[in-house]
Structure formats: C-alpha cells, structure tokens
C-alpha cells in the first residue's frame, strides 16, 4: 500500500519525464513524414467526409447537422478506443525500461495517456474545421468542455492502469479487447443518433456508459447542455473506477516486472 503510494507520488513528481516522453513519442512517430501529425488530422477529415456523405444518405438526415455530430463522436470515440487497445501493451512495450531503469510504473501509463491525448487534440482540430464549415454557432455550453475532458481523462487513467496490468499477465487480453471495442463501436451511438432510436429500445443507450461519456463532449459542442444524468453517471464512474484500479494496482504492482 505505502509502496503503491510512493509509486504514485514519484510518478506525479516526475511529470517532466512522462510529458516529455509522450511528446517525443509523437515527434518521433511523424518525424520523417511530410505533414507530420497533421496526417492524422487529414485522415480524420477524409473519414468524416466519406462517412458523413454515406450515412447522412442512408439515415436520411441533413448533412449539415449530421457532419458535426459524426465528427465529434468519432474523434472522441477514437480516444477511448486507442486507450483501450494500447493500454494492455504499455508494460510489455516498456519491458526493457522497466527491467533496466528504476522508475515508477505509473510513469509508463501516464506517458501513454499523454500520447493519446496529444493525438486527440490533433484530431480535434478536424472537428473544429467541420464545425466552422457547417457554421456551428459558438455557444456558452462550450465552456463545459474542459470539465468534460477532465472527467474523461479521470476515467481513462484508471482504465489504462488496470488494462496495462491485465495485459502484462495475460497475453491475449489485447485481441479480446479488440473484438469488444469493435462491438461497442456499433452499440454506441456514434454513427447513428440516439434520438433516432425507437422509444422501446432507448434503454440500450441508457445503460451504455460510453454513451454518457461521449455525450459529455458532444452535447456542449453541438450547443446544448448534457443531461444531468450523464454528468452524474460519468462522475460516479470516475470515482468507482479510480478506487477499483487503485486496488488492483496495490495488489499486483510488484508482480509486473516478474510478468513481462
């Protein structure tokens, strides 16, 4: 318990290390490319345009309303999905570091979060472009966004810690999570809109925590306040997940170097 505390304390105190490493990860990944990280933004734009045109036709919705909705949903979803998919590999990828340099384990997790968040910010620019193009009005509800992002990261961190530990122990965790993520992509209102769902099937969405997390970013950007239920659920989730992941971390932290 105290050692887990020390790990967290030292990890937070070493913020220079994980912010620096996360930043360098991005720099190195795109170093020898023409557009650098803007490739990601470009790729997102292309996805939006193709999917937006296709699904606004299929779902018979107005492309002006649909495109901003779709772009925000996809970009936020990509943040969740990449955290779920990359977290199980955090400790495995950092194997050499963990076995040769003494540093808090959480540094590796925080580094990964920083990296994902930076990619998210790049993608978010694509959202801004879409919103400007379709003349989405600037609304005071936008001021809620920092809180939403804070809550999302407050959920991402404990999930990442737990999945990283799971992935270190069980090597097939990552492929299993890959399948789960794919299923969740269709179950969650990302491409389709939850307002379009028949009333009898609404509970599909109501019980989906991912929907509430998405709504926290989407609703303010589209100019409305998110449901107070969504806010409450996400807040509660953040607290419970943190407690749960902290328990897992206390129990298994010292085993991770043995597993990798």
């Amino acid at each position: 318990m105290t050692r887990a505390n020390t790990d967290l304390g030292n990890a937070l105190a070493a913020w220079r290390i994980w912010i620096g490493l996360g930043w360098q990860d991005i720099q190195i990944r795109y170093q020898r490319t023409l557009l650098g990280p803007w490739w990601v933004t470009m790729g997102q734009m292309v996805t939006f345009i193709v999917m937006g045109m296709l699904f606004s036709a299929v779902l018979r919705t107005d492309v002006r309303q649909y495109m901003p909705y779709l772009s925000i949903s996809i970009v936020t979803w990509n943040l969740f999905a990449s955290i779920i998919l990359e977290s199980p590999l955090i400790f495995i990828d950092a194997k050499h570091l963990i076995l040769s340099v003494r540093m808090p384990l959480l540094v590796h997790v925080l580094r990964s979060i920083v990296r994902q968040f930076l990619v998210f910010l790049h993608n978010f620019l694509a959202v801004v472009v879409v919103c400007l193009y379709f003349e989405q009005p600037v609304n005071e509800s936008w001021f809620l966004l920092p809180l939403s992002v804070f809550l999302l990261l407050g959920i991402a961190l404990p999930c990442s810690v737990a999945l990283a530990i799971l992935g270190a122990r069980f090597r097939d965790a990552q492929p299993i999570l890959g399948i789960a993520t794919q299923v969740l992509f269709f179950l969650t209102p990302i491409v389709w809109r939850w307002q379009d769902l028949p009333l009898a099937s609404k509970w599909w969405v109501t019980i989906n925590p991912l929907h509430h997390m998405l709504e926290l970013v989407r609703a303010p950007l589209l100019g409305s306040w998110p449901d107070s239920d969504s806010l409450f659920i996400v807040f509660l989730m953040m607290i419970l997940l943190n407690l749960w992941a902290w328990g897992i971390f206390i129990l298994f932290r010292s085993r991770v170097p043995y597993w990798i």
Partner: peptide
Amino acid sequence: TILDGEMTGYENINRALVLL
C-alpha cells in the same frame, strides 16, 4: 536496451536525458 534503432543518436540522447 534503452536505445531505439529507428531514432538518431541525438534523439536517443535526448530521450535518455528525459528518462533520467
């Protein structure tokens, strides 16, 4: 083990300085 083959010498040095 802490060196990355894809990165240049200077990049590796920078990364090691951050790490340490």
